[in-house]
Design a protein around this nucleic acid. Structure first.
Lengths: 152, 152
DNA sequence: CTATAATTGAAAATGGTTTTCGATTTCATT
DNA sequence: AATGAAATCGAAAACCATTTTCAATTATAG
């Protein structure tokens, strides 16, 4: 009820501008912080986190929580306001947008047959993209992990 | 390739038994640890985490990563081996299983039109269940959150 | 310009989860 | 049984993305 007053600051504008410039690409909070610093706009890490949190609440940014806990969340500028589904490759992280009749039909089916109202903004389908699937279905990923462990 | 040997221990059996006994209910690692302790089966917290991690890798447990970072993940016994989609209410957490023609058709559509192979085991749709939707669409949830904050 | 309230940011705290490492347990082989 | 190699245990410490603290700064209204 009690709406909080909002001050417009260069820091918050800078964070928003950064994500807008990246269009649909995903960045972690740390990456945003680093990039801002490199481009001369020094914004404190705390402030970056706070700005991102606020932008997510406002629906300006979309947040992706990685399955592995402890990993950094990443954020993406949400240019399109209309709802559509996202599917993310569990190996390479590629994100695809699904905006078609099939999605709408599926939503209607869920509503009528399962009694749920699908939240397209918060749902991220997980799958395997064509490229990663052709690489022997995850074999490549296992190799990556082994190399990571060997590097330690 | 090099398969690691597995030793059967009472601790791992206890963790598995705990989740099986809970059937489809969700528990955090901490809850599993506490419950095991109460029922006389003292299993170290580290071991509970390790057992859960392993069971997830084996597909025996399903892991839910909460949207709010820092919150504990929760785990659920995965009794049914056949693939189907899950949809979870973002307010009350109710989980529904979707095992119907529409899901299969949607999977085929994703494959043919978007080049992705949907991973039904890792995908959890987010939505609003009928009960929570009727409670003025999330008003109840906001009240909950306010109470939580007031309690601090 | 002044008062009030929001924002900033460095440093410290938080908290779920993982790592460390020495002690213990499992299991295959004598 | 006895032995040994390898996996597991678990308490404590480390980890690390994120949040909180709090004093200094800055934005806005009057």
């Amino acid at each position: 009820m009690l709406e909080r007053k909002r001050y417009k600051t260069k820091q918050q504008e800078a964070v928003l501008a950064f994500f807008q410039a990246g269009q649909e690409r995903c960045f972690t909070a740390e990456e945003a912080y680093a990039h801002l610093g490199e481009s001369g706009m020094d914004v404190g890490k705390t402030t970056v986190y706070r700005a991102i949190t606020r932008l997510c609440e406002e629906g300006v940014l979309r947040r992706y929580t990685p399955a592995e806990s402890g990993d950094a969340a990443f954020y993406q500028y949400n240019s399109c306001k209309d709802n559509h589904l996202h599917i993310r490759c569990r190996v390479c992280g590629e994100l695809a947008h699904m905006d078609c009749e099939a999605v709408e039909g599926f939503c209607r089916h869920i509503a009528s047959h399962h009694g749920f109202q699908l939240d397209e903004g918060q749902t991220v389908l997980v799958g395997l993209c064509g490229r990663c699937a052709s690489l022997e279905g995850g074999q490549a990923r296992r190799k990556e992990k082994q190399q990571e462990e060997a590097a330690r």
